[in-house]
Write a protein that binds this DNA or RNA. Structure first.
Lengths: 216, 216
DNA sequence: AACATTGTTGACCGATCGGTCAAAACAATC
DNA sequence: GATTGTTTTGACCGATCGGTCAACAATGTT
Protein backbone atom coordinates (compact mmCIF):
# COMPACT_ATOMS: atom_id res chain seq x y z
CA UNK A 1 0.00 0.00 0.00
CA UNK A 2 1.58 3.29 -1.09
CA UNK A 3 1.40 6.44 0.97
CA UNK A 4 -1.62 7.99 -0.72
CA UNK A 5 -3.91 5.06 -1.42
CA UNK A 6 -5.86 6.01 1.68
CA UNK A 7 -7.02 9.19 -0.06
CA UNK A 8 -9.11 7.72 -2.86
CA UNK A 9 -10.19 4.83 -0.66
CA UNK A 10 -13.33 2.92 -1.38
CA UNK A 11 -16.15 5.41 -1.83
CA UNK A 12 -18.91 2.90 -1.17
CA UNK A 13 -17.51 2.26 2.28
CA UNK A 14 -17.62 5.97 3.03
CA UNK A 15 -21.21 6.19 1.90
CA UNK A 16 -22.27 3.33 4.17
CA UNK A 17 -20.38 4.78 7.10
CA UNK A 18 -22.13 8.10 6.61
CA UNK A 19 -25.47 6.31 6.54
CA UNK A 20 -24.65 4.61 9.81
CA UNK A 21 -23.34 7.77 11.46
CA UNK A 22 -26.43 9.68 10.46
CA UNK A 23 -28.73 6.97 11.75
CA UNK A 24 -26.77 6.66 14.97
CA UNK A 25 -26.92 10.40 15.56
CA UNK A 26 -30.69 10.33 15.31
CA UNK A 27 -30.96 7.47 17.79
CA UNK A 28 -28.31 8.59 20.26
CA UNK A 29 -29.31 12.25 20.41
CA UNK A 30 -32.64 11.99 22.20
CA UNK A 31 -31.73 9.12 24.51
CA UNK A 32 -28.02 9.44 25.21
CA UNK A 33 -25.43 6.69 25.11
CA UNK A 34 -27.09 4.24 27.46
CA UNK A 35 -30.62 4.87 26.28
CA UNK A 36 -29.84 4.00 22.67
CA UNK A 37 -29.58 0.47 21.29
CA UNK A 38 -27.64 -0.88 18.35
CA UNK A 39 -30.80 -2.56 17.11
CA UNK A 40 -32.58 0.80 16.94
CA UNK A 41 -29.65 2.28 15.04
CA UNK A 42 -29.64 -0.67 12.67
CA UNK A 43 -33.36 -0.25 12.04
CA UNK A 44 -32.90 3.47 11.39
CA UNK A 45 -30.07 2.76 8.94
CA UNK A 46 -32.01 -0.14 7.40
CA UNK A 47 -29.05 -2.45 7.86
CA UNK A 48 -28.58 -5.65 9.86
CA UNK A 49 -27.23 -5.07 13.33
CA UNK A 50 -24.13 -7.13 12.63
CA UNK A 51 -23.32 -4.82 9.76
CA UNK A 52 -23.19 -1.82 12.07
CA UNK A 53 -20.66 -3.59 14.25
CA UNK A 54 -18.66 -4.67 11.22
CA UNK A 55 -18.13 -1.04 10.22
CA UNK A 56 -17.95 0.63 13.61
CA UNK A 57 -16.41 -2.02 15.84
CA UNK A 58 -18.48 -1.33 18.94
CA UNK A 59 -21.23 0.86 20.30
CA UNK A 60 -18.70 2.94 22.17
CA UNK A 61 -16.47 3.48 19.13
CA UNK A 62 -19.46 4.59 17.10
CA UNK A 63 -20.53 6.98 19.82
CA UNK A 64 -17.08 8.52 20.21
CA UNK A 65 -16.85 8.99 16.46
CA UNK A 66 -20.10 10.93 16.53
CA UNK A 67 -18.86 13.16 19.34
CA UNK A 68 -15.65 13.94 17.47
CA UNK A 69 -17.52 14.68 14.26
CA UNK A 70 -19.74 17.13 16.09
CA UNK A 71 -16.87 18.87 17.79
CA UNK A 72 -15.05 19.41 14.52
CA UNK A 73 -18.02 21.39 13.28
CA UNK A 74 -17.50 23.92 16.04
CA UNK A 75 -13.85 24.56 15.44
CA UNK A 76 -14.12 27.73 13.38
CA UNK A 77 -16.06 29.77 15.95
CA UNK A 78 -14.32 32.77 17.56
CA UNK A 79 -11.04 31.49 16.17
CA UNK A 80 -9.54 34.55 14.57
CA UNK A 81 -10.17 37.40 16.98
CA UNK A 82 -7.58 39.81 18.35
CA UNK A 83 -7.47 42.66 20.82
CA UNK A 84 -8.14 45.00 17.90
CA UNK A 85 -11.39 43.29 16.85
CA UNK A 86 -14.70 45.04 17.24
CA UNK A 87 -16.54 43.39 20.15
CA UNK A 88 -19.96 44.20 18.73
CA UNK A 89 -19.14 42.59 15.43
CA UNK A 90 -17.47 39.58 17.03
CA UNK A 91 -20.23 38.88 19.55
CA UNK A 92 -22.94 39.37 16.92
CA UNK A 93 -21.20 36.86 14.69
CA UNK A 94 -20.72 34.53 17.64
CA UNK A 95 -24.41 34.59 18.50
CA UNK A 96 -25.55 34.12 14.92
CA UNK A 97 -23.03 31.40 14.16
CA UNK A 98 -23.85 29.43 17.30
CA UNK A 99 -27.55 29.79 16.57
CA UNK A 100 -27.03 28.62 13.01
CA UNK A 101 -24.94 25.62 14.04
CA UNK A 102 -27.66 24.49 16.39
CA UNK A 103 -30.22 24.70 13.61
CA UNK A 104 -27.97 22.96 11.13
CA UNK A 105 -26.98 20.07 13.37
CA UNK A 106 -29.81 19.63 15.86
CA UNK A 107 -29.12 15.94 16.47
CA UNK A 108 -25.41 16.48 16.95
CA UNK A 109 -26.10 19.30 19.38
CA UNK A 110 -28.49 17.18 21.37
CA UNK A 111 -26.02 14.33 21.37
CA UNK A 112 -23.43 16.61 22.87
CA UNK A 113 -25.92 17.91 25.43
CA UNK A 114 -26.84 14.38 26.50
CA UNK A 115 -23.18 13.55 26.92
CA UNK A 116 -22.61 16.55 29.19
CA UNK A 117 -25.78 15.81 31.10
CA UNK A 118 -24.53 12.29 31.78
CA UNK A 119 -21.42 13.79 33.34
CA UNK A 120 -19.31 13.83 30.16
CA UNK A 121 -17.75 10.38 30.69
CA UNK A 122 -16.27 10.42 27.18
CA UNK A 123 -15.46 14.13 27.03
CA UNK A 124 -13.96 14.86 30.43
CA UNK A 125 -10.43 15.31 29.16
CA UNK A 126 -11.52 17.32 26.14
CA UNK A 127 -13.44 19.74 28.35
CA UNK A 128 -10.66 20.20 30.88
CA UNK A 129 -7.99 20.23 28.17
CA UNK A 130 -8.57 21.64 24.72
CA UNK A 131 -11.80 23.45 25.48
CA UNK A 132 -10.55 24.92 28.73
CA UNK A 133 -7.55 26.38 26.94
CA UNK A 134 -9.78 27.69 24.17
CA UNK A 135 -12.00 29.51 26.66
CA UNK A 136 -8.99 30.85 28.55
CA UNK A 137 -7.43 32.25 25.40
CA UNK A 138 -10.70 33.90 24.30
CA UNK A 139 -11.10 35.30 27.79
CA UNK A 140 -7.75 37.06 27.58
CA UNK A 141 -8.80 38.91 24.46
CA UNK A 142 -12.20 39.86 25.85
CA UNK A 143 -10.51 41.20 28.97
CA UNK A 144 -8.35 43.40 26.74
CA UNK A 145 -11.48 44.78 25.11
CA UNK A 146 -12.77 45.71 28.54
CA UNK A 147 -9.50 47.40 29.48
CA UNK A 148 -9.63 49.39 26.26
CA UNK A 149 -13.07 50.64 27.29
CA UNK A 150 -14.75 48.93 24.36
CA UNK A 151 -17.16 47.18 26.73
CA UNK A 152 -18.06 46.74 30.38
CA UNK A 153 -15.75 44.86 32.70
CA UNK A 154 -17.64 41.56 32.76
CA UNK A 155 -16.20 38.13 33.42
CA UNK A 156 -15.51 36.70 29.93
CA UNK A 157 -16.19 33.17 31.08
CA UNK A 158 -19.71 33.99 32.17
CA UNK A 159 -20.24 35.86 28.92
CA UNK A 160 -19.18 32.87 26.85
CA UNK A 161 -21.40 30.57 28.93
CA UNK A 162 -24.28 32.99 28.49
CA UNK A 163 -24.05 32.95 24.72
CA UNK A 164 -23.60 29.21 24.63
CA UNK A 165 -26.59 28.54 26.82
CA UNK A 166 -28.90 31.12 25.28
CA UNK A 167 -28.33 29.81 21.75
CA UNK A 168 -28.20 26.11 22.55
CA UNK A 169 -31.50 26.40 24.36
CA UNK A 170 -33.40 26.62 21.11
CA UNK A 171 -32.09 23.31 19.81
CA UNK A 172 -31.79 21.25 22.96
CA UNK A 173 -35.03 22.49 24.49
CA UNK A 174 -36.82 22.63 21.17
CA UNK A 175 -39.55 20.37 22.54
CA UNK A 176 -40.25 22.89 25.29
CA UNK A 177 -39.93 25.94 23.06
CA UNK A 178 -42.26 24.65 20.37
CA UNK A 179 -44.70 23.40 23.00
CA UNK A 180 -44.89 26.82 24.59
CA UNK A 181 -45.02 28.71 21.31
CA UNK A 182 -47.64 26.32 19.98
CA UNK A 183 -45.70 25.75 16.77
CA UNK A 184 -44.42 22.61 15.09
CA UNK A 185 -40.96 24.10 14.68
CA UNK A 186 -39.26 27.46 14.89
CA UNK A 187 -39.99 29.60 11.82
CA UNK A 188 -37.40 31.68 10.02
CA UNK A 189 -39.10 34.75 11.44
CA UNK A 190 -38.78 33.35 14.95
CA UNK A 191 -35.09 32.68 14.46
CA UNK A 192 -34.43 36.17 13.12
CA UNK A 193 -36.38 37.68 16.00
CA UNK A 194 -34.46 35.61 18.55
CA UNK A 195 -31.09 36.54 17.07
CA UNK A 196 -32.01 40.19 17.10
CA UNK A 197 -33.19 39.96 20.70
CA UNK A 198 -30.05 38.20 21.89
CA UNK A 199 -27.83 40.67 20.09
CA UNK A 200 -29.74 43.58 21.56
CA UNK A 201 -29.71 42.35 25.14
CA UNK A 202 -26.20 40.90 25.29
CA UNK A 203 -24.41 43.69 23.44
CA UNK A 204 -26.26 46.42 25.26
CA UNK A 205 -25.91 44.50 28.51
CA UNK A 206 -22.15 44.41 28.04
CA UNK A 207 -22.05 48.12 27.32
CA UNK A 208 -21.19 47.69 23.67
CA UNK A 209 -22.50 50.59 21.65
CA UNK A 210 -23.32 49.00 18.32
CA UNK A 211 -20.64 50.47 16.07
CA UNK A 212 -22.11 49.84 12.63
CA UNK A 213 -25.66 48.55 12.47
CA UNK A 214 -25.41 45.48 10.26
CA UNK A 215 -28.55 45.34 8.17
CA UNK A 216 -30.75 42.26 8.59
CA UNK B 1 -61.79 3.94 56.18
CA UNK B 2 -63.01 7.44 56.99
CA UNK B 3 -62.41 10.44 54.76
CA UNK B 4 -59.32 11.76 56.50
CA UNK B 5 -57.38 8.64 57.43
CA UNK B 6 -55.21 9.27 54.39
CA UNK B 7 -53.74 12.33 56.13
CA UNK B 8 -51.92 10.69 59.02
CA UNK B 9 -51.12 7.65 56.87
CA UNK B 10 -48.28 5.30 57.68
CA UNK B 11 -45.12 7.34 58.16
CA UNK B 12 -42.76 4.44 57.51
CA UNK B 13 -44.24 4.05 54.07
CA UNK B 14 -43.55 7.72 53.34
CA UNK B 15 -39.97 7.39 54.46
CA UNK B 16 -39.36 4.42 52.20
CA UNK B 17 -41.00 6.16 49.27
CA UNK B 18 -38.78 9.18 49.78
CA UNK B 19 -35.74 6.90 49.85
CA UNK B 20 -36.80 5.37 46.56
CA UNK B 21 -37.63 8.70 44.94
CA UNK B 22 -34.30 10.13 45.96
CA UNK B 23 -32.40 7.11 44.65
CA UNK B 24 -34.40 7.12 41.42
CA UNK B 25 -33.69 10.80 40.86
CA UNK B 26 -29.99 10.18 41.11
CA UNK B 27 -30.12 7.34 38.62
CA UNK B 28 -32.58 8.85 36.15
CA UNK B 29 -31.06 12.32 36.02
CA UNK B 30 -27.80 11.59 34.24
CA UNK B 31 -29.11 8.91 31.91
CA UNK B 32 -32.75 9.76 31.21
CA UNK B 33 -35.70 7.43 31.30
CA UNK B 34 -34.42 4.77 28.93
CA UNK B 35 -30.84 4.87 30.12
CA UNK B 36 -31.75 4.10 33.72
CA UNK B 37 -32.52 0.62 35.07
CA UNK B 38 -34.63 -0.46 38.00
CA UNK B 39 -31.77 -2.59 39.23
CA UNK B 40 -29.51 0.47 39.43
CA UNK B 41 -32.20 2.35 41.33
CA UNK B 42 -32.64 -0.58 43.69
CA UNK B 43 -28.89 -0.72 44.32
CA UNK B 44 -28.82 3.02 44.98
CA UNK B 45 -31.72 2.72 47.42
CA UNK B 46 -30.22 -0.44 48.96
CA UNK B 47 -33.49 -2.26 48.49
CA UNK B 48 -34.43 -5.35 46.48
CA UNK B 49 -35.69 -4.56 43.01
CA UNK B 50 -39.06 -6.16 43.70
CA UNK B 51 -39.49 -3.77 46.57
CA UNK B 52 -39.17 -0.76 44.27
CA UNK B 53 -41.95 -2.13 42.10
CA UNK B 54 -44.09 -2.91 45.12
CA UNK B 55 -44.07 0.75 46.14
CA UNK B 56 -44.00 2.43 42.76
CA UNK B 57 -45.91 0.06 40.52
CA UNK B 58 -43.77 0.46 37.43
CA UNK B 59 -40.72 2.22 36.07
CA UNK B 60 -42.92 4.66 34.21
CA UNK B 61 -45.06 5.51 37.26
CA UNK B 62 -41.93 6.16 39.29
CA UNK B 63 -40.53 8.39 36.58
CA UNK B 64 -43.71 10.42 36.21
CA UNK B 65 -43.87 10.91 39.96
CA UNK B 66 -40.38 12.34 39.89
CA UNK B 67 -41.27 14.75 37.11
CA UNK B 68 -44.32 15.98 39.00
CA UNK B 69 -42.37 16.41 42.20
CA UNK B 70 -39.82 18.53 40.39
CA UNK B 71 -42.41 20.69 38.70
CA UNK B 72 -44.11 21.48 41.99
CA UNK B 73 -40.88 22.99 43.22
CA UNK B 74 -41.04 25.60 40.48
CA UNK B 75 -44.55 26.78 41.12
CA UNK B 76 -43.80 29.87 43.18
CA UNK B 77 -41.59 31.61 40.61
CA UNK B 78 -42.85 34.84 39.01
CA UNK B 79 -46.28 34.05 40.39
CA UNK B 80 -47.34 37.31 42.01
CA UNK B 81 -46.28 40.04 39.62
CA UNK B 82 -48.47 42.83 38.27
CA UNK B 83 -48.16 45.68 35.82
CA UNK B 84 -47.14 47.86 38.76
CA UNK B 85 -44.20 45.68 39.77
CA UNK B 86 -40.66 46.92 39.41
CA UNK B 87 -39.08 45.02 36.48
CA UNK B 88 -35.58 45.31 37.91
CA UNK B 89 -36.63 43.81 41.20
CA UNK B 90 -38.72 41.09 39.57
CA UNK B 91 -36.11 40.01 37.07
CA UNK B 92 -33.37 40.07 39.68
CA UNK B 93 -35.44 37.83 41.88
CA UNK B 94 -36.28 35.62 38.95
CA UNK B 95 -32.62 35.14 38.07
CA UNK B 96 -31.55 34.49 41.65
CA UNK B 97 -34.46 32.16 42.38
CA UNK B 98 -33.93 30.12 39.24
CA UNK B 99 -30.23 29.91 39.98
CA UNK B 100 -30.92 28.82 43.54
CA UNK B 101 -33.43 26.16 42.48
CA UNK B 102 -30.91 24.64 40.12
CA UNK B 103 -28.34 24.47 42.90
CA UNK B 104 -30.83 23.07 45.37
CA UNK B 105 -32.22 20.37 43.11
CA UNK B 106 -29.48 19.51 40.63
CA UNK B 107 -30.71 15.98 39.99
CA UNK B 108 -34.30 17.06 39.51
CA UNK B 109 -33.22 19.77 37.11
CA UNK B 110 -31.16 17.33 35.10
CA UNK B 111 -34.02 14.88 35.08
CA UNK B 112 -36.24 17.54 33.60
CA UNK B 113 -33.60 18.47 31.05
CA UNK B 114 -33.20 14.86 29.96
CA UNK B 115 -36.95 14.56 29.54
CA UNK B 116 -37.07 17.64 27.28
CA UNK B 117 -34.03 16.46 25.35
CA UNK B 118 -35.79 13.16 24.67
CA UNK B 119 -38.65 15.11 23.10
CA UNK B 120 -40.72 15.45 26.29
CA UNK B 121 -42.77 12.26 25.75
CA UNK B 122 -44.23 12.49 29.26
CA UNK B 123 -44.48 16.28 29.43
CA UNK B 124 -45.87 17.26 26.04
CA UNK B 125 -49.28 18.22 27.32
CA UNK B 126 -47.90 20.03 30.35
CA UNK B 127 -45.65 22.16 28.14
CA UNK B 128 -48.34 23.04 25.63
CA UNK B 129 -50.99 23.45 28.32
CA UNK B 130 -50.19 24.73 31.79
CA UNK B 131 -46.72 26.05 31.04
CA UNK B 132 -47.74 27.69 27.79
CA UNK B 133 -50.50 29.60 29.60
CA UNK B 134 -48.09 30.54 32.37
CA UNK B 135 -45.63 32.02 29.89
CA UNK B 136 -48.40 33.81 28.01
CA UNK B 137 -49.75 35.41 31.18
CA UNK B 138 -46.26 36.54 32.29
CA UNK B 139 -45.66 37.90 28.80
CA UNK B 140 -48.71 40.13 29.03
CA UNK B 141 -47.40 41.80 32.16
CA UNK B 142 -43.89 42.23 30.78
CA UNK B 143 -45.37 43.82 27.66
CA UNK B 144 -47.17 46.29 29.90
CA UNK B 145 -43.87 47.20 31.54
CA UNK B 146 -42.45 47.95 28.11
CA UNK B 147 -45.43 50.11 27.19
CA UNK B 148 -45.00 52.04 30.41
CA UNK B 149 -41.43 52.76 29.39
CA UNK B 150 -40.01 50.80 32.30
CA UNK B 151 -37.91 48.71 29.93
CA UNK B 152 -37.07 48.17 26.26
CA UNK B 153 -39.62 46.69 23.94
CA UNK B 154 -38.26 43.14 23.86
CA UNK B 155 -40.20 39.95 23.18
CA UNK B 156 -41.09 38.64 26.67
CA UNK B 157 -40.95 35.05 25.48
CA UNK B 158 -37.33 35.34 24.40
CA UNK B 159 -36.55 37.09 27.65
CA UNK B 160 -38.03 34.27 29.70
CA UNK B 161 -36.19 31.68 27.63
CA UNK B 162 -32.98 33.65 28.06
CA UNK B 163 -33.21 33.62 31.84
CA UNK B 164 -34.22 29.97 31.90
CA UNK B 165 -31.35 28.89 29.71
CA UNK B 166 -28.69 31.09 31.27
CA UNK B 167 -29.44 29.86 34.78
CA UNK B 168 -30.12 26.22 33.99
CA UNK B 169 -26.83 26.02 32.16
CA UNK B 170 -24.90 25.94 35.41
CA UNK B 171 -26.69 22.86 36.69
CA UNK B 172 -27.30 20.87 33.54
CA UNK B 173 -23.90 21.63 32.00
CA UNK B 174 -22.12 21.49 35.32
CA UNK B 175 -19.75 18.84 33.94
CA UNK B 176 -18.69 21.26 31.20
CA UNK B 177 -18.55 24.31 33.44
CA UNK B 178 -16.44 22.68 36.13
CA UNK B 179 -14.21 21.09 33.51
CA UNK B 180 -13.52 24.47 31.92
CA UNK B 181 -13.10 26.27 35.21
CA UNK B 182 -10.87 23.50 36.55
CA UNK B 183 -12.87 23.21 39.73
CA UNK B 184 -14.60 20.30 41.40
CA UNK B 185 -17.80 22.29 41.82
CA UNK B 186 -18.99 25.86 41.63
CA UNK B 187 -17.97 27.83 44.70
CA UNK B 188 -20.21 30.28 46.52
CA UNK B 189 -18.07 33.07 45.12
CA UNK B 190 -18.58 31.76 41.60
CA UNK B 191 -22.33 31.65 42.10
CA UNK B 192 -22.47 35.18 43.45
CA UNK B 193 -20.32 36.39 40.58
CA UNK B 194 -22.52 34.64 38.02
CA UNK B 195 -25.72 36.06 39.50
CA UNK B 196 -24.25 39.53 39.49
CA UNK B 197 -23.13 39.14 35.89
CA UNK B 198 -26.50 37.88 34.70
CA UNK B 199 -28.32 40.65 36.51
CA UNK B 200 -26.01 43.26 35.07
CA UNK B 201 -26.22 42.06 31.47
CA UNK B 202 -29.90 41.16 31.32
CA UNK B 203 -31.27 44.17 33.18
CA UNK B 204 -29.02 46.61 31.37
CA UNK B 205 -29.66 44.78 28.12
CA UNK B 206 -33.38 45.25 28.59
CA UNK B 207 -32.93 48.92 29.31
CA UNK B 208 -33.83 48.61 32.98
CA UNK B 209 -32.11 51.26 35.04
CA UNK B 210 -31.50 49.52 38.36
CA UNK B 211 -33.93 51.31 40.66
CA UNK B 212 -32.53 50.48 44.09
CA UNK B 213 -29.22 48.66 44.26
CA UNK B 214 -29.95 45.67 46.46
CA UNK B 215 -26.89 45.01 48.53
CA UNK B 216 -25.17 41.65 48.06
C1' DA C 1 -54.38 -17.29 70.17
C1' DA C 2 -56.45 -16.90 65.61
C1' DC C 3 -56.85 -14.35 61.67
C1' DA C 4 -56.41 -10.78 58.02
C1' DT C 5 -53.60 -7.32 56.08
C1' DT C 6 -49.45 -5.41 54.64
C1' DG C 7 -44.50 -5.64 53.60
C1' DT C 8 -40.40 -8.31 51.87
C1' DT C 9 -37.82 -10.80 48.67
C1' DG C 10 -35.59 -14.65 45.83
C1' DA C 11 -36.73 -16.95 41.85
C1' DC C 12 -38.24 -16.67 37.60
C1' DC C 13 -40.43 -14.97 32.89
C1' DG C 14 -39.95 -13.49 27.93
C1' DA C 15 -37.67 -9.76 25.62
C1' DT C 16 -33.81 -7.26 24.55
C1' DC C 17 -29.04 -5.83 25.39
C1' DG C 18 -23.96 -5.55 23.12
C1' DG C 19 -21.17 -8.50 20.84
C1' DT C 20 -19.24 -12.96 18.34
C1' DC C 21 -18.93 -16.15 14.71
C1' DA C 22 -19.14 -18.87 10.76
C1' DA C 23 -21.15 -19.62 6.52
C1' DA C 24 -22.53 -17.63 2.37
C1' DA C 25 -22.28 -13.85 -1.17
C1' DC C 26 -19.55 -10.78 -3.54
C1' DA C 27 -15.42 -8.56 -5.72
C1' DA C 28 -10.78 -8.44 -7.43
C1' DT C 29 -6.55 -10.58 -9.03
C1' DC C 30 -3.98 -13.79 -11.52
C1' DG D 1 -12.01 -20.15 -13.65
C1' DA D 2 -9.64 -20.96 -9.49
C1' DT D 3 -7.96 -18.12 -5.64
C1' DT D 4 -7.87 -14.52 -2.48
C1' DG D 5 -9.81 -10.90 0.21
C1' DT D 6 -13.90 -8.16 1.59
C1' DT D 7 -19.02 -7.63 2.83
C1' DT D 8 -23.16 -9.36 4.37
C1' DT D 9 -26.07 -11.51 7.62
C1' DG D 10 -28.71 -15.02 10.43
C1' DA D 11 -27.91 -17.52 14.38
C1' DC D 12 -26.38 -17.49 18.64
C1' DC D 13 -24.05 -16.14 23.42
C1' DG D 14 -24.30 -14.64 28.34
C1' DA D 15 -25.97 -10.62 30.67
C1' DT D 16 -29.44 -7.59 31.73
C1' DC D 17 -33.98 -5.47 30.93
C1' DG D 18 -38.94 -4.49 33.22
C1' DG D 19 -42.15 -7.02 35.50
C1' DT D 20 -44.68 -11.12 37.94
C1' DC D 21 -45.41 -14.27 41.52
C1' DA D 22 -45.55 -17.15 45.37
C1' DA D 23 -43.63 -18.12 49.74
C1' DC D 24 -42.74 -15.96 53.83
C1' DA D 25 -42.20 -12.40 57.71
C1' DA D 26 -44.19 -8.75 60.16
C1' DT D 27 -47.90 -6.22 61.85
C1' DG D 28 -52.23 -5.05 63.26
C1' DT D 29 -57.26 -6.48 64.73
C1' DT D 30 -60.36 -8.93 67.36
Amino acid sequence: MTADTANQENASRDRIEQTILSAAEQVFSPHGYRGASLQAIADQAKLPKANILYYMGSKQALYVRLLNRMMNRWNAVLEDITEDSDPGQVLSDFIRTKMMLGQRYPEGSKLFAAEILAGAPFLKEYLSGELKEWVASRAVIIRQWSQQGKMDDVDPRWLIFLIWSATQHYTEYSAQVTGILGEEALSEADLASICQFLEHVILKGCGITSSNATSH
